[in-house]
Amino acid sequence: MTPQNPTNKKVISLQNVTKRYADETVVSKVNFTIQSGECVVLVGHNGAGKTTLMKLMLGLTRPTSGKVKVLDSNPAFSSTIAQHRTLGYLPESVAFYEAMTGREVLAFYAQLKGASRTDCENLLEVVGLADAARRRVGTYSKGMRQRLGLAQAMLGNPQLLFLDEPTTGLDPLLRQQFYELIDALHKEGATSVISSHALNEVEARASRFIIMKTGRVVASGTLDELYQQAALPVRLKVTVTPGEAASVADRLGPETRIGEVNHQTLNLSCFNGDKMPLIRRITELGDVVNDLQILPPRLDEVYSHFMNGEPS
């Protein structure tokens, strides 16, 4: 999945949304908007409020205060039921009627959504369940149920997808296939909101991230924006002529933050503003430098930064 070009059409808008259960505040003063065509990933620790936020956007629960708008209307109103035809939802722990076969379950949800039987068969094929379609769901493994859940969420070419931990229980190949499916839907203009703990999987795939901590949004933006906000150092890996690493370290001077040095590599780090001057100094070293790799902070590092720091 690659980030798509979102249009300016606002499909989801949350204004100062708070959700409380008795004395516990699970979502607190959350504000964000999602444009059509975006792939937004919600990240956060367990209990950060990601699932509640999804339920609020689906109209499965009502905010204690604040406004939720999905496709220009309040999803909690029963008058918006017809809109659900254009939504796809995969819950965190997907469950189906155990006594029914995979095909029957999918056909049931397809009929509810007004999707065709051909859609069902195609999706069963796509998620690799065509051979098991005649088996009862009760005999399915966790991964198979998850795949059936994905097929169910994708019924009727949804314009808005809510996927809560969608790749849990899927093997690497199926994860790849899943993201290809999402990518195909995005190319058709779909918008998706994905909640995930698999940061390495979603890093290159999301158009935007919303990082949540104890019910609050602590950071949001594209990966580049998050790097800027976090102000984490950029790492540089310099490969030099064998045996020259120590001398190169000396020549770079004490002002350079040098990490690990071995026979022919040096790991350096610097803040974004110092990156270009450092690169210039490295290139000035001449033929002794064989290679230079610039490693920006990874999403998990950005995530750790925001989770360990104070909300911005």
């Binding site: 039921i81 939802y89 189906f96 959504k113």
Partner: peptide, 14 residues
Amino acid sequence: NRTISLLLSAPVSI
């Protein structure tokens, strides 16, 4: 069994 959440998110009223 938590099957209700899928039913409630479908285009069908209570």
